[in-house]
Design a protein around this nucleic acid. Structure first.
Ligand SMILES: [Mn+2]
Ligand SMILES: [Mn+2]
Ligand SMILES: [Zn+2]
Ligand SMILES: [Zn+2]
Lengths: 153, 153
DNA sequence: TTGTTAATGAAATTCATTTTCAATAAGGAG
DNA sequence: CTCCTTATTGAAAATGAATTTCATTAACAA
């Protein structure tokens, strides 16, 4: 009772449980933070927001939860030029998208325009590269770097 | 006299000088290390090799030189999942290429096969994105993540 | 309800990178 | 070549994101 959405069987609880992990209040808080934003948050930004949902959570738990979710493939870890990693839910309403990264302010802008052509070309390329280099490709990253509107001189 | 190749006017010396910087033994060592490898080295790996060319060089100078070269656009900084940044000369014999990154051993493999189609698509996409998001694109990054031959289970 | 053990928070630690600061040397002027 | 300005340097200290340690807590299967 009083349980948030999607934390029952088949939802997040199930995802953890299925792999022998446990659903805890800390993990629920982190997931709720990630679920309720379109931003690309760093660990400590997630910590600050998660603490509002669960004042007892520690930063360590945030790092550990992010690590676990990353291994589970449920979140994407981004390493912009800026030194701190940033995270976003893999299966958000946003769907498959790529990024524009501002090298001035480190803002990350999602885009999914023109993505179909990109993804199509990429999957062909993946196939060729896999064969030629005997490399098992699991994922790809495309980012454009430059200056965002706000940072234009 | 006794000066290595390409450190005279119009070469590296000129590149620094033109921007009001000075050519020094430390910088020459770092550049020579980068020029003589196809690997993607980290700062401390560069330091170890540079010390063989110039035993007096300090790690701090390596970092500072890499920062300067990066600003000058003469090297590319790569941030693989692994926490240390890696570097490669922008204008090497390797030419424009993209990367396969092994998520097990962090090895980085260059490829330039099939690159023409990629670059062509990317430049079209860049044009459209630039306009739509009012974003000035200077550079792009494409990486495929997976498991290299040596790490295959 | 109980037992097993995954998960936690706080504090300590790691480690790449940056900053500080006094000493050095690149290179233009004379 | 010599002198001078100041960019550059190395060593040591500082920073800061991320990880590890360890004693305590709580998830959840039985
Ligand atoms: Mn995104
Ligand atoms: Mn490369
Ligand atoms: Zn910006
Ligand atoms: Zn590998």
């Amino acid at each position: 009772m009083g349980r948030g959405k999607c934390f029952g069987q088949g939802g997040w609880h199930g995802k953890f449980h299925g792999r022998g992990y446990r659903m805890t209040a800390g993990r629920e808080a982190v997931i709720n933070v990630l679920s309720s934003t379109k931003e690309h948050l760093s660990a400590d930004e997630i910590f600050i927001r998660a603490r509002k949902l669960n004042p007892d959570i520690g930063l360590t738990t945030v790092y550990r939860t992010l690590e676990r979710l990353s291994i589970m493939g449920e979140i994407h870890r981004l390493d912009p030029g800026d030194k701190r990693a940033r995270f976003e839910l893999a299966e958000s309403e946003k769907g498959h998208h790529h990024h524009l990264v501002c090298t001035k302010c480190n803002r990350i802008i999602d885009y999914d325009d023109f993505i179909d052509d990109e993804v199509k070309l990429l999957s062909e390329t993946e196939k060729k590269l896999s064969k030629k280099y005997d490399f098992k490709i699991n994922n790809h990253l495309i980012q454009f770097y430059g200056e965002c509107k706000e940072c234009a001189e």
